[in-house]
Amino acid sequence: MKKYILLFLFLLNAFMIDSDVMEESKLKSIFIYQIGKFTRWPQQTTDPDTPFVISIIGKTSPGSEIDIPGDKTIDNREILIRKISKLQEVPGSDVLFVTNSEAYRLETILDHIGNIPVLTFGDTEGFAERGVIVNFCIENNKLRFEINLEAVKKASLHLEFRLVKLAVRVFPQKKGSRGK
């Protein structure tokens, strides 16, 4: 019996890869927080009484929601995370996270936002091409993001160039370009 336990532990030990790991939803939350810090909005306020609003539209499952600790701030503003279901609720948001369930009406959502300065995020294949500013994707077990610069311009936002350099793909792509 002991032999089998030793063999099991040995195999397990061999599989233990010494790497940093984190839950996908937590990693996305950190990225949103960090990218938010590297973005400038037109007429940006630093009034601590005005919360920095992150809105989430679409379905999420319990335990996989975007969550940022209460002691974190962006430009001294307390971060408020809220779920919305109506497009009318978008104004007032600094960030809008569009979940996978909204894929079928993404264009409607983006049309509704128009030129409103909202930093849009997604985590669905093709979202950046379709006009979402930052779109998460997983490549080689790592969380990566794509950026749509045309959408950045349309929203009159200023993203630090460092973000663009770190993006795995930048849209719109030139003809023949295959991304980074």
């Binding site: 790497s19 996908e24 960090q34 997983i138 790592k142 460092r162």
Partner: peptide, 17 residues
């Protein structure tokens, strides 16, 4: 504090799905 990790470090983290 994981929320203060740099973007470069975050890109090295393996994601649990």
């Amino acid at each position: 504090d994981e929320f203060e990790m740099s973007l470069e470090d975050l890109l090295k983290v393996n994601v649990i799905t």
